[in-house]
């Protein structure tokens, strides 16, 4: 009854929640045990970016085929992505407090970039709700979606790499260079990414079906 990949996502996350707490991790100053957050904080963001990518693919699909279903999926995926950015921001803020010493820092381009990207996507939903005509709304939203995705990509993937960032792999942060190579952590990190991406797809699947159902119900009346 339940699709196999949904069960797989639950099993993968279950594995990362248990083994992620028990396996041995590199001993680093400042980070200490919080290095395990890599298993939980980072995959959440992967899921968010995946959902936004899913959303833009269906936006383009809608523009080429003009179908209602693609518009519904595009909208629901953007919602799911925005939802995942909330725990992403909260966990990041928590982690920052105990390693960088502050809840939020404007020194880090990735934090500011993600905040701007979230505002851009909030504008997407405001844009949607402000247009009454169905076809018009779907098409304008799809065009804006492409713009939003490109801006998000620039703000969180490109700009942080051009300047100095506290995030690993963006500016100079030698403390993380070690974990980048640690095969012990990869054994948990990669399953965590796959698990959370599939989990976000599960949530999207439910939201999509619900939206389709309410759409067909509204059109009956």
């Amino acid at each position: 009854m339940i699709k196999w990949w949904k069960i797989l996502s639950a099993l993968l996350i279950f594995y990362t929640l248990t083994w992620g707490m028990l396996n041995s991790v590199p001993r680093l100053d400042i980070l200490n045990e919080t290095i395990r957050n890599v298993y939980y904080h980072v995959p959440i963001w992967f899921a968010m970016i995946f959902q936004m990518g899913y959303s833009v693919v269906y936006a383009i699909k809608h523009l080429s085929k003009n179908d209602v279903q693609s518009d519904i999926i595009s909208n629901q995926a953007a919602q799911t992505g925005l939802f995942f950015s909330i725990p992403g921001l909260l966990t990041g803020s928590m982690w920052a407090k105990f390693t960088w010493g502050t809840w939020w820092t404007f020194e880090d381009p990735k934090l500011n970039g993600v905040a701007i990207a979230m505002l851009i996507y909030l504008a997407y939903f405001i844009l949607r709700s402000s247009i009454i005509d169905e076809l018009k709304r779907a098409r304008i939203a799809a065009v804006y979606n492409i713009f939003a995705f490109v801006m998000m990509f620039v703000f969180i993937m490109i700009l942080p790499r051009l300047t100095d960032s506290l995030h690993p792999g963006n500016g100079g942060n030698p403390a993380f260079a070690k974990y980048d190579l640690d095969s012990n952590m990869r054994m948990v990190f990669y399953p965590a990414v796959i698990g959370w991406v599939l989990f976000s797809l599960w949530i999207l699947d439910i939201k999509k079906r619900l939206a389709t159902l309410s759409y067909s119900k509204n059109n009956e009346e």
């Binding site: 009854m1 339940i2 949904k6 639950a10 996350i13 279950f14 929640l17 248990t18 707490m21 599960w202 949530i203 699947d205 439910i206």
Partner: peptide
């Protein structure tokens, strides 16, 4: 952690069905 996550997954399965 396991109990919390199992509950969430069970709830999702319930909603799905």
């Amino acid at each position: 952690l396991s109990i919390i996550f199992t509950c969430i997954v069970a709830y999702l399965i319930y909603i799905d069905i």
